[in-house]
Simulated scan of single mutants.
Amino acid sequence: MATDKKHIAVYLDPAVEAALVAFCEQKGLKSKKGTMFSAGVNAALAEFFRIAGSEVSNIPIITGNIPGS
């Protein structure tokens, strides 16, 4: 997927990973493939830096009420 957004790579400490997974679950950032880490990191950083109305992700959130999900 082509994007003009900055790409970063991090090595998560296991405790940070567990907290991020819990954060994503709380925010509903899950897809058929599992935890949406990129969207979760964007949401967590936006919350940390108090950036209101920021776009968390351009990936739609898949919920259980969509046919085929």
Rank of each mutant, 00 (worst) to 15 (best):
M1Q: 12
M1C: 10
D4L: 09
K5S: 00
K5F: 00
K6I: 14
K6W: 07
H7F: 02
H7Y: 03
A9Y: 09
A9V: 14
A9S: 15
Y11R: 15
L12I: 02
L12W: 05
L12P: 04
D13W: 11
P14K: 14
P14S: 14
P14M: 11
P14G: 12
A15I: 05
V16N: 08
E17A: 15
A18Y: 05
A18M: 11
L20Q: 05
L20S: 07
L20E: 06
V21N: 07
A22S: 11
A22P: 01
A22I: 03
F23E: 10
F23M: 07
F23D: 10
E25G: 09
Q26L: 07
K27H: 14
K27S: 05
G28Y: 07
G28F: 07
S31R: 14
S31Q: 12
S31E: 10
S31N: 14
K32H: 08
K33W: 11
K33G: 08
T35R: 10
M36A: 05
M36C: 04
M36D: 01
F37L: 11
F37C: 01
F37S: 01
F37T: 02
G40N: 01
G40W: 00
G40P: 01
V41G: 01
V41L: 12
N42G: 00
A43E: 06
A44T: 05
L45T: 05
L45Y: 03
L45Q: 01
A46R: 06
F48V: 13
F49I: 12
F49C: 13
F49S: 12
R50W: 06
R50G: 12
R50E: 15
R50I: 13
A52V: 14
G53Q: 06
S54Y: 11
S54G: 09
E55M: 11
V56T: 07
V56L: 06
S57C: 11
S57Y: 03
S57N: 10
S57I: 02
N58S: 12
I59P: 00
P60Q: 04
P60E: 03
P60N: 04
P60I: 01
I61C: 07
I61L: 13
I62K: 08
T63A: 04
G64M: 07
G64D: 08
N65P: 00
G68R: 08
G68V: 08
G68Y: 05
G68D: 06
S69M: 12
